[in-house]
Write a protein that binds this DNA or RNA. Structure first.
Length: 414
RNA sequence: CGGGGUGUUGUGUAACGGUAGCACGAACGCUUUGGGAGCGUUUAGUCAGAGUUCGAAUCUCUGCACCCCGACCA
């Protein structure tokens, strides 16, 4: 991508309104644009990151046996009345249509996936299975905050699993716990993320939150100093001691919930009469699990833990581009020609390059923008490097620069 | 939803109730080109409505928007 054509704009001044670091950096670097409180557009840079996150999650879901589907955002009121959530779920967006028709905008999809599964599940032979989607959710949050960390409209991966027994659900739940850790590891926030015991709400004793430590987090978690189990505030109030090892020595930390998994059990199968015929001929309710990750929140969370004074430092796995190619001295024909050649050669090797071909920007401005945007490798072509028959390469998270031959670039980057 | 705060060009800010100014950005010209370079010219703004006043960005009221704290949170 030619930077001179990229649909974005960086801003030098810190935003007066963005308090969270990720919010400020993502806005200033031109990844996102705020339309209103809690609602954002993703510009090309941001959308690329989002897609990369999406692909990591999708790959892991498919490996965990999930089949990708797409369910409607617009949903009938009746299904929500049936589960009692039409009136009890404060964050539910309700919209009206022609006549007296009322609809829900999906904040989550149990009310759609349960009746859907009913059309497919008849026998124990139809179980288990899991389906997932990556889709826009709407939640009328009473208070949005911290940029992408809490929004009213957001892309979410939600998976629903269906089982013949509690035991089978438990097994899959444990499996997904590991898969989730793998996802966060691939996203570059694995080491900061804790599996945290949380209240299961109305349908099971516990659920598990994946909490990433950050001062920007809105949640407080308590990490057991003895066994490293984490519990959230609700659990701490009920159990002064660690539920795993009975220690009462906790460390209090701020964290953001990057994922949440639930055992729905029969909470939704009962109202939707979701049953199957077991081997012995009896009808039994289906056990359900639910596994969510907010993609935008994940993106914001990554930035909260990967930045320095100059800007974002993207993990290679989700960076918008692999290489930021910068030419300095655009009026020099040799510089321009060399940079263009590198741009083309790298792309032939399927390496994604953002090429700063802007002729009216000084070196300092290009470097400042590159640091702010945070692409993992910065490659510089200038008269200076060409005098040594080489180009310069620098990693965003390192201080040192290296002079290398242009031919070596592919090998270094791959 | 309760509480607090703030609304001034695209961004960041200044202006006692008395000429809306500065910096960045953008545009044009010239000079520059390894860490946001220089000179000159230009561009664009008081959230909306009502009120008080000779006069309102400034005071009052209403509305709207955004931010923060709390509560809430599949």
């Amino acid at each position: 991508m030619l930077q001179s054509k990229l649909f974005y704009k960086t801003t030098r001044e810190k935003s007066a309104e963005a308090e969270a670091i990720s919010h400020d950096l993502l806005a200033r670097a031109g990844f996102v644009d705020q339309l209103m409180a809690g609602v954002y557009s993703f510009l090309p840079l941001g959308f690329r990151v989002l897609k990369n996150i999406e692909n990591i999650i999708r790959k892991n879901m498919v490996e965990a046996g999930g089949q990708e589907i797409l369910m409607p955002v617009l949903q009938p009121k009746e299904n929500w009345v049936k589960t009692g959530r039409w009136n009890n779920l404060e964050i539910l967006f309700k919209v009206s249509g022609s006549g007296d028709k009322e609809y829900a905008l999906g904040p989550t999809h149990e009310e759609v996936v349960s009746p859907l599964a009913k059309k497919i599940i008849f026998s124990y032979r139809d179980l288990p299975f899991s389906v997932f989607q990556i889709q826009t959710k709407f939640r009328d949050e009473l208070r949005v905050k911290s940029g992408l960390l809490r929004t009213r409209e957001f892309l979410m991966k939600d998976m629903y699993s269906f089982h013949e027994s509690q035991a089978d659900l438990d097994k899959y739940y444990d499996k997904l716990t590991k898969v989730y850790f793998n996802i966060f590891k691939e996203l570059g926030i694995g080491k900061d993320t804790y599996l945290t015991l949380a209240s299961g709400g109305t349908f099971s004793k516990y659920s598990h939150e994946f909490q990433m430590l950050t001062p920007a987090g809105e949640d407080t978690i308590y990490i057991c100093n003895k066994c490293k189990t984490a519990i959230n505030k609700e659990i701490k109030e009920e159990n002064p001691a660690c539920p795993e090892c009975s220690s009462d020595n906790f460390e209090e930390k701020k964290a953001v919930e990057v994922g949440n998994i639930f055992k729905l059990n029969t909470k939704f199968s009962l109202p939707f009469d979701l049953k199957f015929k077991d081997r012995d001929g009896t009808e039994k309710p289906v056990f359900m699990g639910c596994f969510g990750i907010g993609l935008g929140r994940a993106m914001g969370s990554v930035v909260e833990t990967n930045y320095d004074d100059n800007g974002i430092i993207w993990p290679k796995s989700i960076a918008p581009f692999a290489v930021h190619l910068i030419e300095i001295g655009s009026n020099d024909k040799k510089v321009k020609a060399t940079a263009l050649k590198i741009y083309q050669d790298l792309q032939k090797e399927n390496i994604e390059v953002l090429y700063d071909d802007r002729v009216d920007k000084t070196a300092g401005e290009k470097f400042a923008d590159a640091d702010l945007i945070g692409i993992p490798y910065r490659v510089v072509v200038s008269e200076k490097t060409l005098a040594k028959n080489s180009v310069e390469i620098k990693e965003r998270d390192k201080k040192s620069v290296k002079l290398v031959k242009a031919k070596q670039l592919v090998k270094i980057i791959k």
